[in-house]
């Protein structure tokens, strides 16, 4: 099948996606390092519009303080985003039910991302897929490499360990109807030492849906690695963009010079 594989690679001009992630708290953008320290990095709508103009392919908004009383505020923010930007965007954080999903999609989100709730009740994935289509269901996995050499799934923003291995959960959530996987290595997140290449390659190579790599990027080379070695379909990052350590136009020019298809 090697020659056929090569043929398929040549016959697709789908671009690798660059996705800034905006963590939202009280309507403002923040980014934690190793899920703890938070720094303020601006207004989400303005920041998203700026990223869209710079060439971001998509934007992810994660409401890290999502609670029931905040839900309405989030929907209003989503509505403002939908009216402002002309690229797709995903919203997540504390989504626990089809009702939560309907509110966000109704406000204009293109996709939603779910994590803990999907793990605790995988039928939520199929419910959303049946009601709104697989294309809008991005299942996020936070995973950690442990001493036994296995990647385990963590919940509740990395605070709760499970016995589930990442590769097993990835296969299950595809069967339930997920449209994409947002894969975050907790070992790499916040380190700026690069993405989890082996993990990303393993998961991307074992599921039939796109995989978005997340966690650990600190340089433009890291993006090239995660597309070439990690076989990721998209790469997500936050602080390197928010603090202008990497500018998206420069990043795309760099990736293009490495013969990686990107939208310029």
């Amino acid at each position: 099948m090697n020659s056929a594989d090569n043929k398929i690679i040549l016959e697709s001009t789908l671009a690798k996606r660059i996705i800034p992630c905006l963590d939202i708290k009280d309507g403002r953008t923040v980014k934690g390092t190793n899920f703890i320290e938070l720094r303020d990095a601006g207004d989400p709508v303005e920041l998203a519009a700026a990223y869209a103009i710079q060439g971001a392919d998509e934007i992810v908004f994660l409401d890290i303080t999502a609670t029931i009383e905040k839900r309405k505020t989030l929907a209003q923010l989503v509505n403002r985003i939908a009216k402002t930007i002309n690229i797709p965007f995903t919203v997540g954080g504390g989504i626990g039910s089809m009702e939560d999903v309907s509110v966000l999609l109704g406000a204009g989100a293109d996709k939603i991302t779910i994590n803990t709730a999907a793990f605790n009740d995988p039928s939520l994935i199929s419910t959303i897929a049946a009601n709104a289509g697989s294309q809008c269901v991005v299942v996020a996995i936070d995973t950690k490499l442990e001493a036994d050499g296995e990647w385990y799934v963590y919940l509740n923003g990395g605070r709760k360990r499970t016995e589930m291995k990442c590769r097993d959960w990835a296969k299950q959530l595809v069967e339930m109807g997920a449209g994409e996987i947002l894969l975050t290595s907790m070992n790499h997140d916040g380190t700026k030492k690069g993405f989890a290449l082996e993990l990303t390659a393993e998961i991307a190579g074992s599921v039939s849906i796109p995989v978005i790599a997340s966690g650990g990027c600190g340089s433009m080379e890291h993006f090239a690695e995660v597309f070439l070695e990690g076989r990721a379909d998209a790469a997500l990052a936050a602080s390197v963009f928010h603090f202008k350590e990497i500018q998206i136009p420069d990043l795309k020019t760099f990736l293009s010079s490495k013969a990686i298809e990107v939208r310029i």
Partner: peptide
Amino acid sequence: DFSLLKVPQVGWN
């Protein structure tokens, strides 16, 4: 075709 051709096609072409 798994890592080579994901379905759905998601993204910019």
